[in-house]
Design a protein around this nucleic acid. Structure first.
Lengths: 247, 247
DNA sequence: CAAATAGTGTCTATGAGACACTATGCA
DNA sequence: TGCATAGTGTCTCATAGACACTATTTG
């Protein structure tokens, strides 16, 4: 780190907030009210204040956009539909914002089905949009700034991490069945998985799932045992990613 | 991205440049000449200019610090001791620089044994330091700013990526033997690997290694076939990381 | 020849993938 | 009873890991 050459940048955080609603992978987008890109969809985000770190800024934006409780502090012991938040990458193309040189640090958030997003102070309107509806229209086109690229990176990160981490549980409520967890994988990867093998894999991996004892019959068949996420963060060996079917 | 709340940050890039010299994993460090942290070791880096992207700034610093040819453009077809360069993460703790709010984007570079680093315009002195010499002294302590954390993240990224990518070849010259590649894994992971199984794995994975036809006998046994890196970027199934032996 | 390193073959345990089968609820 | 979903068992194939063995050089 040198001591000459200081120039000033604007720094924002932008969030790729993913959830699953109505059997679809959705991303939270806001409709921009102001120029540039007025009227276009964009990832939620905002400037980083001088008195907060990058993660704190991301957590603040997450709360503002979703009205959601912050992922920290983790409550003692029991069931918590944890929102996962991690840094994705920094984006610094010279003209990514036409007004000034603005750098953004993108974060990836994974959450269980959230309450309807309440408009933050800044966001004109926030809504969960099915990812398929965006990719269908010519490769994520139409997003403001370089947000198509950021979203693509976030999606790839999420898909990849399902393979070798226990992250899929972040899309589930505090207690869930094996079938619900499997649906998460199938929806995120866009490909079906063998229910029997999946069951053996996730229940056989120590620390992945923790049985809560009782069961439920939400779906009208034999009642399924309920689990909550276990302590294991990584999965070894990894789950093999099924290749997406269809277009 | 909102339109209010703009504040100005300084933005730097810092580089974790790893190489292998004399059977040891080494990182390029500079001795700081100026306050803060004058006299301390630090990662090389510098401010991002207004007319360059983050990667361009990283590439410029890499060239300045190492005198090395840039990893791009990749020359047609043949042997190139590619320097690998990728973004690591952004670091934005409030007081990470005591002078001002400065954000840094860290990059990770992996290179084959480099010529002696020539002092760049800014660096007082740059030298490759064995990582073991740093970790031995109480957890990477003594580095300026938050560079101990950045270095730790870079090391972990490098170790992890050897598992599931063909990245280890970035530590090798353009043409190398299987044994040399295996030494890379052993040095980075700090644990021995079975030579026979390793050989089967890397030669059996399509696209990982590309035989160049001739062979060499640098080490006095049966001559070994030479390879250059193949087209495959990822390794599936992954190589299993051996757990580091000893302290 | 011995020593040293390169490279192959073979066995075993494990896990993925395919899929038949049993278990337990509800209408 | 039939139907739907949960969960288990079993087979086959691929691969990691262990390690005996052969191959090709130098001294």
């Amino acid at each position: 780190m040198q001591d000459d050459g200081y120039v000033a940048y604007g720094v924002t955080v932008d969030l790729v907030i993913l959830t699953i609603r109505a059997e679809q992978l959705c991303v939270l987008l806001v409709r921009r009210g102001l120029a540039p890109f007025a009227g276009a969809l964009a990832l939620p985000g905002g400037f980083v204040r001088l008195d907060e770190t990058l993660v704190e800024a991301a957590r603040r934006e997450l709360a503002e956009e979703t009205g959601l409780l912050l992922p920290e502090p983790p409550p003692q012991g029991s069931a918590w539909p944890g929102v996962h938040l991690e840094q994705l990458a920094a984006y610094g193309a010279i003209d990514r914002d036409p007004r000034a040189r603005i750098l953004t640090i993108a974060f990836l958030a994974l959450a269980p089905d959230l309450p309807e997003p309440r408009s933050g102070t800044d966001a004109a309107a926030a809504e969960f949009v099915p990812v398929a509806a965006l990719t269908g229209l010519g490769g994520l086109g139409g997003l403001a700034f370089d947000h198509a690229e950021i979203l693509a990176d976030g999606l790839e990160r999420a898909r990849a991490k399902l393979e070798y981490t226990a992250l899929a549980t972040a899309f589930c409520p505090a207690e869930f069945t094996v079938a619900e967890l499997r649906r998460v994988y199938e929806i995120v990867w866009g490909a079906p998985l063998d229910a029997r093998n999946f069951h053996r894999k996730v229940t056989g991996t120590p620390g992945f799932l923790e049985p809560v004892g009782h069961s439920t019959a939400r779906d009208g068949g034999r009642p399924a045992a309920l689990y909550r996420r276990g302590a294991a963060e990584i999965l070894h060996p990894a789950m093999r990613r099924a290749r997406a079917a269809g277009p």
